[in-house]
Design a protein around this nucleic acid. Structure first.
Length: 293
DNA sequence: CTTCAAACCTGTGGGC
DNA sequence: TGCCCACAGGTTTGAA
């Protein structure tokens, strides 16, 4: 499941292998893969043809290729998206959605996506606090690895919310790049329960949690990301190995490495939360006891 | 305005 | 062996 470290790994691969090259043609093999591109698949191809790729950028889980036309190819990997750099002769992947061929006849860029939660579109760039971003990214907050990330503003905004802590961590308009895996990992590191009310969380705890988010994401990035089932891979098709370092996610019944208590799994937001019932105590009032979610 | 949850999609694996 | 269903989950959309 691509979250920030996985998307950043892919972005770095795109920077290395496609930036500076000129697109000869883009072929859309599956309409749904470009459903966010309102003018349709044919227009998608027309917009990128003969454009040179000037850069590969990212905010949170979104990434985009800036074109010399002034527009950008925006991509989101969703649950199962891959961007692969493949020699033109390699047989098509089963779930190949979009193919970019280049005028240098070098390796193609292929968008492969089993579940098609992700997708691509060609977007105008707009200013977002001094940074040009594609229109659909304008409402996405900066991520914790962004040098311009505003930790104080984040703490203030989080404590204004009346919701549960993990819901806030997953809200991409508050802080971006965090998904279910790294939310659980950071909460475990910070010894905080997923249902802790944000409104009463001390600012010091917010700072500590944010530091733990950064720690786990930085470590995951160094490992090339997390992968369970090879659905997430870098542009060369290789998986990361951070899954060997996970402390909480997916480890229901296994002993907590701090205290030995078997880890638990609760249903949460139509998915799962993994946590240590001893290190991460449930809040007394609001949250997991009173309501299921 | 804020908060929440259904819907989108396909492959896998457990239960029967 | 085969069928059915739960599960994986990021984002958008619309409702309350």
């Amino acid at each position: 499941m691509p979250e920030l470290p996985e998307v950043e790994t892919v972005r770095a691969g795109l920077e290395r292998f496609v930036v500076g090259r000129r697109i000869a043609a883009a072929t859309v093999g599956h309409e749904r893969a470009v459903r966010r591109h309102r003018p349709g698949a044919a227009d998608f191809g027309d917009r990128v043809r003969d454009c040179r790729i000037e850069g590969a950028a990212r905010r949170g889980k979104y990434l985009w290729l800036a074109l010399d036309s002034g527009e950008a190819v925006l991509a989101h990997l969703g649950m199962s998206g891959q961007l692969l750099v493949q020699p033109a002769g390699v047989p098509d992947e089963k779930h190949l959605r979009v193919r970019f061929a280049f005028d240098d006849d070098g390796p193609e860029l292929r968008s492969v996506d089993q579940r098609t939660f992700g997708g691509m579109s060609v977007e105008e760039l707009v200013d977002s606090a001094g940074t040009p971003v594609p229109v659909p990214v304008a409402h996405i907050a900066r991520d914790p690895l962004d040098p311009a990330f505003d930790a104080v503003g984040f703490a203030r905004a989080l404590r204004r919310r009346r919701t549960q802590l993990k819901r806030a961590l997953l809200d991409q308009s508050l802080v971006s790049g965090i998904g279910n895996i790294y939310a659980d990992e950071a909460l475990w590191l910070a010894r905080l329960h997923y249902a802790r009310p944000t409104h009463s969380l001390p600012a010091a705890d917010v700072r500590r949690l944010l530091a733990d988010v950064t720690t786990v994401m930085t470590a995951a990035l160094a490992a090339g990301g997390t992968s369970f089932d090879s659905l997430y891979v870098n542009v060369n098709g290789a998986s990361g190995y951070f899954d060997r370092s996970l402390e909480a996610y997916g480890r229901v019944g296994r002993p907590c490495s701090r205290c030995g208590t078997p880890l638990a799994r609760d249903p949460f937001m139509n998915r799962s939360s993994f946590f240590c019932p001893d290190c991460q105590r449930a809040p007394r009032r609001a949250g997991s006891v009173r309501r299921v979610n």
